[in-house]
Design a protein around this nucleic acid. Structure first.
Length: 282
DNA sequence: CCCTAATGAGTAT
DNA sequence: TACTCCTTAGGGG
C-alpha cells in the first residue's frame, strides 16, 4: 500500500526492529543476491523515508534504496519465535542474528531495491519536494512550483519533485476535501487554497502514519454518523471519492465521476468540486 | 502530450 | 489467462 505514510511506517518499523542489530541479509529470489552478500553480517545503522523513498543504512555509508512502486510490499515482523521459509518472490530478506529478540523483514515486488552511496541518495533527495509527513518542511517550495505551472493541480500533487509522498488516493481525497477540481491549473490557485491543501495533507498523512490506513472522511461523514454501510473493499479506509465511481457523494449525493489524468485514474464530485474552465474530464 | 515496460499477487473470466 | 493496482522511468511525437 505504497503512499508516503506507508513508507514512513516501514522506516519506523525497520528502525525499531533492526537498528543497532547484527543482521543476515539475503535475496531468496536472487535478484539482489550480490548486494545482499556485501551487507550480510553487518550491523544496521538505521532506516529513514523521504516521500516514497526508503533508505536502510549500513556501515561505510552504504544504503539500501527501496521504492515499492505500484504494488511492492515490505513485511516487517518483530519478536517472532521462528523465521518462516520465504513465500513468493522475496527480493530482500533481513533477519536479526544476535542475542536480542528475533525479527525479520521480507521485501517483494519493489520497483527499486539497490545499493547506493550517500551521494546517490542525495541526488534522489535533491529532486524530491517537501514531504508533508516530515517535520520542518517548507510548503512554499512546492507553492513556487504550483503557482508557476499551468499543469492541472491533480497532476502537480503527484509530481514527486513538487511534493513528496502523495499518491493517487491522497490526491483525490485532498482535492475533494478542499473542493478543488482536479483539472484546475496550478497557476490559477490562490495561496490560501494551496496552504489549506498542504495543511490538510499534513493532518491526513499523519493520521495515515498512526493507523496504517488512508482515512479521509470527517466525523460527520463516517458510516456511523450517516447510518450508511462502511466501505467493503480492499484497503479499508473510509474515503470520499477514491474508487467510488457512480456512487453517491457522501456530502451532496451527486454521482462520483472518474477520468484519467496523466495515466492515473482520478475521481471527483462534480458538484462539490465545480469545473474550472476545462471540461475535458466531463 | 502519448505510449510502454517493470516490479507480484489477488481476483475475475 | 487477463486484468487490476495507493508508481515511475523512458522513448517517441
Amino acid at each position: 500500500m505504497p503512499e508516503g505514510h506507508t513508507l514512513h511506517r516501514l522506516a519506523r518499523d525497520l528502525e525499531a526492529a533492526f537498528a543497532g542489530r547484527l543482521v543476515r541479509v539475503g535475496s531468496p529470489q536472487g535478484r539482489f543476491a550480490d548486494s545482499a552478500a556485501l551487507l550480510d553480517g553487518q550491523v544496521v545503522e538505521g532506516a529513514e523515508s523521504w516521500g516514497k523513498h526508503l533508505f536502510i543504512a549500513f556501515p561505510d555509508e552504504r544504503l539500501v534504496h527501496v521504492h515499492l512502486g505500484l504494488y511492492g510490499g515490505f513485511d516487517v515482523r518483530t519478536g517472532v519465535d521462528e523465521v518462516p521459509l520465504p513465500v513468493g518472490q522475496v527480493r530482500l530478506r533481513l533477519v536479526t542474528a544476535d542475542a536480542g529478540p528475533t525479527s525479520y523483514a521480507d521485501l517483494r515486488g519493489a520497483t527499486a531495491c539497490e545499493l547506493l552511496t550517500a551521494q546517490q541518495r542525495d541526488a534522489i533527495l535533491a529532486r524530491t519536494g517537501p514531504d508533508p509527513i516530515r517535520e520542518d518542511q517548507d510548503p512554499t517550495l512546492a507553492w513556487e512550483r504550483v503557482r508557476r505551472s499551468k499543469a492541472p493541480i491533480g497532476g502537480l500533487l503527484m509530481d514527486q519533485s513538487v511534493l513528496a509522498g502523495v499518491g493517487n488516493v491522497y490526491r483525490a481525497e485532498v482535492l475533494f476535501r478542499q473542493r478543488v477540481h482536479p483539472l484546475r491549473p496550478g497557476n490559477t490557485l490562490r495561496v490560501g487554497q494551496w496552504r489549506a491543501m498542504w495543511d490538510d495533507l499534513v493532518e491526513l498523512m499523519a493520521e495515515g502514519v498512526r493507523t496504517g490506513r488512508i482515512n479521509t472522511v470527517r466525523p460527520e461523514h463516517t458510516p456511523e454518523a450517516m447510518g450508511r454501510p462502511p466501505r467493503v473493499d480492499d484497503h479499508g479506509g473510509e474515503v470520499y471519492v477514491y474508487r467510488r465511481t457512480g456512487r453517491p457523494c457522501h456530502v451532496c449525493g451527486s454521482m462520483v465521476r472518474t477520468g484519467v489524468l496523466q495515466t492515473r485514474n482520478i475521481f471527483w464530485c462534480p458538484r462539490c468540486q465545480p469545473a474550472f474552465r476545462s471540461r475535458a474530464l466531463g
